[in-house]
């Protein structure tokens, strides 16, 4: 009996109201900061190379970043519920490998694509099953399937490279007719709008936040927590398989190591976009801005002849900033409220 009443008593002293507008303002500040950073990265790009501001750069940035950006959308949903999916890049690779294998073995491109999407669904369902039904931690499960899916990709395609895809598919690496927009980027924008509406305007999206902030309360309020998480992993698998198809078409080839290591970029984008790794916070708009910043930085660094290896350092630093800054803010307000509390105590 003691535990319950103590829990209540122990909590009372800390029941001091937190100023939430601070946090809201913080969110606005975060996305505002991203906008400023984006503009700054454009200026930086323009200063490094006269070609940066050209439309071609815009196109290539979109092209290089499309798949990562697309995979960041379901990743955002998953991280908001407080989970993670590290198998995304392996699923992309597996999908690309299966597409190449089937096509080389005489399947029609459409049938091969359909199989890839089914594999994505099955792979996502396996993640979801292990996490929601068996209650295993998502980070461990998806590190496991990261290796598993890559391994299957290796068996499927071995060291071969599949090429010779129909020309209409490889044309996807060209701009959309009459514009300078990459197909990848256009697909990302359309999907981002859909994901944004779902996340911010539907009961489903609302329940994702509730799960991430207070899973038990969500369950007590009739949110089907396990089913929703399961669906998110299926969605993630499906979208990653789709990204694998796009990637293959764009490169006009596929190999078993396609997309190796991209999962970290995907997570980095989501976090840099202001999605909290602890769950319950984040916006699609922020993720969209993060995509723009990464894209433009990558383009300008490439223009400035910075090596790809050095570019990963930039990615790493940005990721650290995205984790440090919100925590530093929380830490600061915690210290401030402690000081305030101590003052109050001293006064009484």
């Amino acid at each position: 009996m003691t535990t319950v009443e103590d829990r209540e008593l122990l909590k009372l002293p800390e029941a001091e109201p937190r100023n939430i507008e601070d946090r809201l303002r913080g969110l606005v500040r975060w996305e505002g900061g991203l906008v400023i950073l984006f503009v700054a990265s454009l200026f930086y790009g323009a200063s490094t190379s006269p070609y940066f501001m050209s439309i071609q750069t815009f196109f290539f940035a979109g092209l290089n970043f499309g798949e990562i950006a697309i995979m960041a959308l379901p990743m955002t949903f998953i991280i908001i519920t407080g989970e993670i999916d590290l198998s995304v890049a392996s699923m992309l690779g597996l999908s690309a490998s299966i597409l190449g294998y089937l096509f080389m073995h005489g399947w029609s491109i459409w049938a091969a694509m359909a199989i890839c999407l089914v594999v994505g669904i099955v792979g996502g369902a396996l993640n979801g099953f292990l996490i929601t039904r068996l209650g295993l931690p998502s980070i461990a499960v998806t590190i496991g399937t990261l290796t598993l899916y890559r391994g299957i990709a290796l068996i499927v395609l071995s060291t071969n490279t599949a090429t010779g895809f129909p020309s209409w598919t490889t044309n996807l690496s060209l701009p959309i007719g009459g514009t300078h927009i990459a197909y990848d980027f256009a697909i990302f924008v359309v999907m981002a709008i859909i994901f944004g509406v779902v996340l911010h305007m539907t009961p489903f999206g609302r329940s994702l936040f509730a799960i991430g902030l207070q899973q038990e309360t969500a369950f007590f309020s009739g949110v089907r927590v396990k089913r929703i998480k399961f669906l998110l992993y299926v969605l993630s698998g499906f979208i990653c398989a789709f990204a694998g198809i796009l990637y293959t078409f764009q490169q006009a080839s596929s190999a078993s190591d396609t997309g190796t290591g991209l999962e970290l970029n995907v997570v980095a984008i989501a976090l840099f976009g202001g999605v909290s790794i602890f769950g319950g916070r984040g916006t699609i708009f922020g993720v969209f801005l993060a995509v723009c910043i990464f894209g433009s930085l990558q383009a300008s660094l490439t223009d400035a002849n910075v090596s790809a290896q050095a570019q990963t350092i930039v990615t790493g630093v940005l990721l650290l900033i995205s984790v440090l800054v919100p925590n530093a803010r929380d830490g600061f307000s915690r210290v401030r409220s402690q000081v305030r509390r101590r003052r109050v105590r001293g006064a009484t």
């Binding site: 939430i20 936040f209 509730a210 207070q214 038990e216 309360t217 969500a218 007590f220």
Partner: peptide
């Protein structure tokens, strides 16, 4: 823990 989402 069960009634409210405190940060919502």
């Amino acid at each position: 823990q069960q009634g409210l989402v405190m940060d919502m």
